[in-house]
């Protein structure tokens, strides 16, 4: 896993705990929690650029379509989660955000597997 993915995974971990606490205490995410998601999303954009350079550069047998699909999927999950949760301003909306943040490190693992299995 790249250093960027490791840092982003830690941020996702913080986000997951934060959102879990909000759900337990029945509070809505404030600007600071959303700012954390925004920081993660910026990191995912950087990851997309790095990933595209890698996969179109010196790749040995990595399936480009699958790798790019995971990169783009990682980029989409948080924005879709934010939009989808916005109509539900209660615990359920916060749970949608939590799941979205949970998916990001899972996609990192898959990206890592895809890369290491072929290099």
């Amino acid at each position: 896993m790249s250093a960027l993915q490791a840092v982003l995974s830690v941020l996702c971990g913080i986000g997951i705990l934060w959102l879990a606490v909000l759900i337990v205490r029945d509070l809505r995410p404030g600007n600071s929690a959303l700012a954390l998601l925004a920081v993660i999303e910026v990191g995912l954009v950087v990851q997309l650029v790095i990933g595209l350079v890698r996969v179109f550069g010196n790749h040995t047998g990595v399936s480009v379509a699958v790798y790019v699909a995971y990169l783009v999927g990682a980029l989409l999950v948080l924005p879709i989660g934010v939009v989808w949760s916005s109509a539900e301003r209660n615990r359920n909306g916060t749970a949608v955000l939590l799941i979205a943040v949970l998916v990001v490190p899972v996609l990192f693992l898959r990206l890592h597997d895809l890369w290491s299995a072929h290099v």
């Binding site: 989660g81 989808w84 949760s85 109509a87 539900e88 209660n90 359920n92 909306g93 749970a95 949608v96 799941i99 979205a100």
Partner: peptide
């Protein structure tokens, strides 16, 4: 409600 989580 919870269905929104499920749909996601």
């Amino acid at each position: 409600g919870f269905g929104r989580v499920l749909v996601f």
